[in-house]
Nucleic acid binder design. Structure first.
Lengths: 226, 226
DNA sequence: AACTGTTTGTGATATGTATCACAATTATAT
DNA sequence: ATATAATTGTGATACATATCACAAACAGTT
C-alpha cells in the first residue's frame, strides 16, 4: 500500500524528476510500495524478474551464489535502482537483494518502465547515466577485489562504510563477521584476525559491530597499497 | 576518412538501426572512422573522454592499471560500443582499450550521441540494453575471478575463446603469456605451468599461441568447479 | 535464571600461487 | 647469417590465506 502518490513523493529518483504529470500518473498506476525489515529478501537469484525496483530508503546487499560460495557483490544505499541489469538484460534474476536495515522499495511494472523510457528521453538519459556510473563503480570494486591482498580489501571497505554510507568515522557495521567476509571475499577467521590486528595497531577500534576509525590516513594508505 | 556513409554502412549497431535518414545524417556529420593495427591504443586511461566509440570490426582488450598491476578487464569483439560507461559516467577514461588484431572503429562526437539519445527513444533503449548486458557479463566475470582458483579461471577463459570469440575448438590466442596472465589475474609462470599440465593431461594441446581443445567437457568441468 | 544455538576469536596446519633466478627458445634487427 | 632482445619454461623457495578444531562469548528462547 503506497503511503503517497508518485507525484507527491518526496523521494523521486533523478530519472523520475523528469516525468510530467501525465507520466507520473502512468507510473502511479503500476507502482507498488513495500517495506522490508532487516534480513528480508527483496528479490531472489534464479527467480523470474518482471519488475524494476526503486529503493527509496534504506540499505541493501546484492548477493550472488557462485561456484564456491555466496558473494556479496556490493552494498547499495537509497536512493537507487536495484537490479536494472538483471531485469532489462535478462529475464531471470542473476543475483539476490536483501535489506540490511529497514528499507522501503517501489516495484514498477516492467512494461510501464519501458513505456516511460519510450516517451520521455530525459528519463532514459538519467537511467543511462545511472547504469554507466554503476558499471564504473563495479569495475573499481572488481579491480580492488582481484589485485589487493586481504588487508587492503578490508581497509577499502571500512573506508567505504565511513565515507559513502555513514558519513562518519564511527559507525555500526550492518554486517556480521560472516557477511563481512562475503563482501570482502575471504573467510570469517581472517576478518577476525585483521580487525584484531588493526585494533592492536590503533588504526581502528573494533568492538563487535561498532567500528571507530582512529587513523584514517593510515587506513587509506593500507587500502591503496593492498 | 570514412569508407562509407553511416546510412550505407553494413555494420550498424542495434541502436543505430533504429535511426531515420535525418538522424543518420546527423550521425554521419560527426562520426570519424579509424583503423587500428594490433597493439595500437584506441583510448587511454587517464585521458579526457569526449567520444563514444563504436567498434565496427576486430577484437580489443580493455585494460586498467590497478594498485599492483595492469589488469585486462575483458576482451570485446566487434560489433560493440567501447567505453560507454567511461564517457557518459565520467569525463576521464577509467581504463584503456587496445586492438588485439586489425580493427576499425567509429568515433562519435559526445554531443551528437546525446542528441540521438534525446530524439530517438528506440536508440536509447538499445543503448540501455547493451549497458545492462555488459554489467551482467562483468558481474559473472568478477565472480569467476574472485571465487575460482587459477585452474578454473584459465579454463573459463580458454572456453570463452572457443565459444564466444573464435567459434572453434582450435584457435590462435591473440595474447602472449604475459597478457593471458593479465586477463586471468595471475603470473606468467603460473600460465606456463597450467598450460603445460593441461597439455600433459591431454585436455588441450598448446603450441605457443596455437590452442586446440581436445577434451571440451573436462575443460568445462574444470571451469565450473574452479 | 538456565539452556540452547549462533557467532566470534585464536592456534595450528595445509595449500595454492607469487616471486626469484636462470636457462632455453623464439623473434627481431642488422 | 649473426647478434640482440624478448618471451617462455622450469625449479626452488617464500608468503598469504584457507581450513580445521575448539573454546569463549553473546543472543535468543523457554
Amino acid at each position: 500500500m503506497k503511503s503517497t502518490s508518485c507525484s507527491s513523493c518526496l523521494l523521486k529518483s533523478k530519472a523520475v524528476i523528469n516525468l510530467g504529470d501525465n507520466e507520473l500518473d502512468i507510473l502511479d498506476k503500476s507502482c507498488v510500495q513495500a517495506t522490508f525489515d532487516r534480513g528480508e529478501t527483496i528479490f531472489k537469484q534464479g527467480a523470474l524478474s518482471s519488475n524494476i525496483i526503486y529503493l527509496q530508503t534504506g540499505l541493501i546487499k546484492l548477493m550472488i551464489k557462485g561456484p564456491n560460495r555466496v558473494q556479496i557483490l556490493r552494498l547499495k544505499k537509497a536512493p537507487c535502482y536495484l537490479g536494472l541489469p538483471t531485469t532489462m538484460g535478462d529475464k531471470i534474476n542473476n543475483y539476490s537483494a536483501s535489506a540490511l536495515e529497514k528499507s522501503t522499495a517501489c516495484f514498477i511494472d516492467m512494461n510501464t518502465f519501458k513505456e516511460l523510457l519510450r516517451i520521455n528521453p530525459a528519463f532514459s538519459y538519467e537511467i543511462i547515466i545511472e547504469l554507466c556510473k554503476n558499471e564504473l563503480e563495479q569495475f573499481k570494486r572488481c579491480v580492488t577485489l582481484v589485485q589487493n591482498q586481504i588487508f587492503g580489501r578490508l581497509a577499502s571497505n571500512l573506508i567505504s562504510f565511513a565515507d559513502d554510507i555513514y558519513s562518519s568515522h564511527e559507525y555500526e557495521l550492518p554486517l556480521n563477521r560472516n557477511e563481512l567476509a562475503d563482501l570482502v571475499c575471504t573467510s570469517r577467521e581472517t576478518i577476525s584476525r585483521i580487525l584484531s590486528d588493526l585494533t592492536k595497531e590503533r588504526i581502528i577500534e573494533a568492538n563487535g559491530k561498532h567500528i571507530k576509525i582512529i587513523n584514517y590516513n593510515m587506513l587509506k594508505e593500507i587500502s591503496r597499497k593492498g
